[in-house]
Design a protein around this nucleic acid. Sequence first.
DNA 1: TTGATATTTAGAATGATTCCAATTCTTATG
DNA 2: CATAAGAATTGGAATCATTCTAAATATCAA
Lengths: 143, 143
Amino acid sequence: MRLNTTDLERLKGSLKQAGLKPTRQREHVLSVLLARRDHPTVEEVWQRSRTLSRGISLATVYNCLESFVESGLVKQVNYEREPTRYCPNLRPHAHFKDQETGRVYDIDLPNEVLIQLNSILPEGFRPEAIEISFHGRTKQQAS
Amino acid sequence: MRLNTTDLERLKGSLKQAGLKPTRQREHVLSVLLARRDHPTVEEVWQRSRTLSRGISLATVYNCLESFVESGLVKQVNYEREPTRYCPNLRPHAHFKDQETGRVYDIDLPNEVLIQLNSILPEGFRPEAIEISFHGRTKQQAS
DNA sequence: TTGATATTTAGAATGATTCCAATTCTTATG
DNA sequence: CATAAGAATTGGAATCATTCTAAATATCAA
């Protein structure tokens, strides 16, 4: 979780492009999020961000993640009413939650599936987002 | 919301079939839920259930709905972290939330779509449930 | 009818998230 | 580089859907 100058510049760039002021906290939270391809909760992001020199407040982690979601830098995943999880994978994808381990997997969504899904909507329905979540069991450690 | 004897017997039957003791409160909550094809929150079900002679407690509405979901009599719908909604439609269907009105529509899910969706899962993933939610705008008062 | 068991209930407790108001940053402009 | 205006950060309080608790009540098989 140590950042070299190049990485840092890349992060600043992403934030600016997203229309967000590149603050120390946002850079850190974003780097924490990009460092692993999993789906941490706010609390988990906060734990992982504790390495920041002067620490970071939980409220700020909430704020950062909210602004990232608004600006499209990350996605939110909700399963039932469990704590919201955050996901740095921006490609269209579904989620599969293993009900034994609690782990959430990304499942790529081929374009034809998206098209077929849109085709089931009646006339006049204009979707802006689709969310697809499976939940069940899995036999392997895929992706 | 007045029930004749036949309807009441039908409700008792549904509850028994689902393995639930047919109490006055469960019968009432279930009838309230079946009376409209919408997606009320617990609070809304509670309001609609107030007609019950001696009233009904919020905790009981929570309990009833929980037991209905467990036994498969109704489905749960979650949008983000808004209060959970309950849905008496048991056919496979997706949900579409109109972000202007907040209204949730049922969208029938053709079998071929379900099949295609299952086909995108990697080897070893055994889904037990899929949840598909659209959200966007709609131009009409469909279904 | 009765006892064993399940359900109902009001209110307290929980826990994720949001709000608040004071402090500290960021950055455009001089 | 200094400064001011607007943003972001912060700890703690507040919110609010939901769950828990333990006592009262209802259901149902015998």
